[in-house]
Simulated assay, not measured.
Amino acid sequence: MLYLMNLEILPTDAPPRDLLLLADECPASVDDYLPRGRCHVALLDGEVVGQYILLHTRPFTAEVVSLSVAPALQRRGIGTRLLDHAVRTARTLGFRRLEIGTGDTGFDQLRLYERCGFVRCGIDRGYFTRFYPAPVIENGLVCRDMVRLSMDLDRPAR
């Protein structure tokens, strides 16, 4: 098990593009939300190993977008630490609702988000086929729908 004592999560104006595109493989999508969001990176012994963007979407509502962890370090708790940080940051900024979305074939992501306290609240049918120029393949399946999850931040932390 990776020792995460040295993991720091810090704001940045320059998240690594490869990690952004690992989470969202549509460069136009990333280019749209990147300048509107608050970026944070996870540093392990000084090396960037993960990141997320917190995006103000509606009054009192933020969304976590482009959450990613370097492939060699996935399933070691970094994603959980990033999500916990995003929840705390959103609360500190006064948001009352935090949302996140992932493809309908993102089984590991769905499990992580639900384990961290997010609940499914909707499906955006055909999202990936409407907005992405090429098919998104994940877990050997064509990703079509965006599964939306949310968390009420007015409730105590888990």
Rank of each mutant, 00 (worst) to 15 (best):
V49M: 02
F95Q: 04
R88Q: 15
G117P: 07
V87S: 00
D108I: 02
S150I: 11
L55T: 00
G50E: 00
R38K: 04
G103C: 01
R155A: 14
R88M: 12
D18A: 11
H56R: 14
V147F: 05
D124I: 13
F118V: 01
L98S: 12
D154Q: 08
A14M: 13
L34R: 15
A90Q: 04
E99Y: 03
L67H: 04
T105L: 04
F95V: 09
Q74F: 05
L22E: 13
L93I: 01
F107K: 04
T61C: 15
L153R: 10
I123H: 02
S68M: 03
F131W: 12
R36Y: 05
D108K: 09
G103N: 01
I9N: 00
V136T: 04
D31N: 09
G94W: 11
D32G: 09
L4M: 10
C143T: 15
H56K: 15
L2Y: 14
Q109L: 11
R38I: 05
S29D: 09
D31T: 09
G101V: 02
L19Q: 00
A134P: 09
V41Y: 00
R36I: 03
M5K: 10
R81E: 14
A157C: 11
D24I: 03
L67M: 05
I78M: 05
V142L: 04
R36L: 14
L93K: 09
D31F: 12
I137T: 02
D108V: 06
L21V: 05
E47V: 11
G122Q: 00
L44V: 10
I137L: 00
G122M: 00
D18R: 15
V49L: 05
A72C: 09
I9P: 03
R81N: 07
D31V: 09
P59F: 12
Y33L: 01
R91V: 11
A42N: 01
R158I: 05
H56W: 08
R81I: 12
A42T: 00
T89V: 08
S29G: 00
G140P: 01
R88N: 14
C39N: 15
F60K: 11
D31Q: 12
M1K: 14
C26Q: 15
C143Y: 01
S66M: 15
S150G: 12
P133L: 00
A14F: 07
D13V: 08
D18M: 13
C39T: 08
G106Y: 15
G103R: 04
R144L: 11
R36V: 07
Y52M: 07
Q74T: 00
L83S: 03
R17Q: 13
R155I: 07
Q51S: 07
D124E: 14
F128W: 04
M151E: 03
C39A: 13
I123G: 01
Y113W: 14
Y127G: 08
D13Y: 12
V65G: 05
C116F: 05
D145M: 09
L44S: 07
L4P: 05
A72S: 14
I123N: 04
E47M: 10
A42G: 01
P156G: 11
F131T: 02
G46S: 04
N6L: 12
